[in-house]
Design a protein around this nucleic acid. Sequence first.
DNA 1: GTCTATAACGAGATAGAC
DNA 2: GTCTATCTCGTTATAGAC
Lengths: 188, 188
Amino acid sequence: MEMKERILTSAQRLIQQRGFNGFSYADIAEEVGIRKASLHHHFPTKTDLGLALIEVYSGQLNGALLSISGSSLFADAKLAAYIALYRRSLEADCMCLGGMLASEALTLDPVMLPGLKRFFARNAEWLTEILVEGRLQQLFTLTGNAADHARLLLSALQGALLIARATGDREAFDQTTALLVTDLMKKN
Amino acid sequence: MEMKERILTSAQRLIQQRGFNGFSYADIAEEVGIRKASLHHHFPTKTDLGLALIEVYSGQLNGALLSISGSSLFADAKLAAYIALYRRSLEADCMCLGGMLASEALTLDPVMLPGLKRFFARNAEWLTEILVEGRLQQLFTLTGNAADHARLLLSALQGALLIARATGDREAFDQTTALLVTDLMKKN
DNA sequence: GTCTATAACGAGATAGAC
DNA sequence: GTCTATCTCGTTATAGAC
């Protein structure tokens, strides 16, 4: 199981930095120190690797989300912790794996799309919970319903990460996310 | 000049749908009806094509922006017209060319990056103008400064387009953009 | 400006030995 | 589980005829 995990780790980073169409088995082989052909023993096709990675990444994310929601933090701090996940990705010059695959959606094997869709749904669902919690704690003032705000947060974070990584302007990312939170706390 | 434009049109759509790493000269050749080799007469390398496309697309966008700002619409309607540009892209299953290239930034020839960066800067700059105008018209209430709100709008639109195109959920895009506008009009 | 032909390389994938 | 060897195909790009 050791090698399988090393392959997944390597492939995950390659996809988040270069995209599913921007890396090859040769890149992984060099990183993990085995031959290209040997990779096919663990993941027969690139699509198999992609499917596994969507599951792994969704699992990692879910773990992080449960860790945050299970904490004793107030909702605004939980949201800040979620935003910090994106910020750390930016520091590693990585897109969100979901966002990267989303940009390549039309070129992917369609079997990967349901998992990708679930990934975004899970993010939106969790954010909705946090927003409802924050409203109960009177930390957030929501203009619309919580689910709409959740989708807006998700879109804004994905977009801010996309742009900041390409322009190299991390300060813009921080200002954007700061405003995103500020707006939630606005009183009417 | 006829053929050169047809190549650019074809390549633009291919990039917006499949990404710079997701299409090839063979795809263009089939669409415009000449051989792959002939394409190199117009654009010697793929990077040359990419550079030309960034300029073309930036020019198209700038034309659209000037048309909107030059109109007699109120600022909220101008913003709606800007959002409609993204909505139309979604209908064609297209990413914004800038957003697509941004996702692939680490795999692109670095000479393409300055043009890409200017593209985002131009969008943010135009949005800032509209927001200032809307504030003067007392249509918008801004929590932070206009430039920050502009970047947030840009990020949210890019992210909403990215996600909606991959999930096929166009209603989510509409709800997200509607909330984005609502929040701008919030009174404190 | 477009063609045929081809080079040069890298991709994903398979066969079969060890 | 990893290796060498190989296959097949697609990629960007070039040479030179028309």
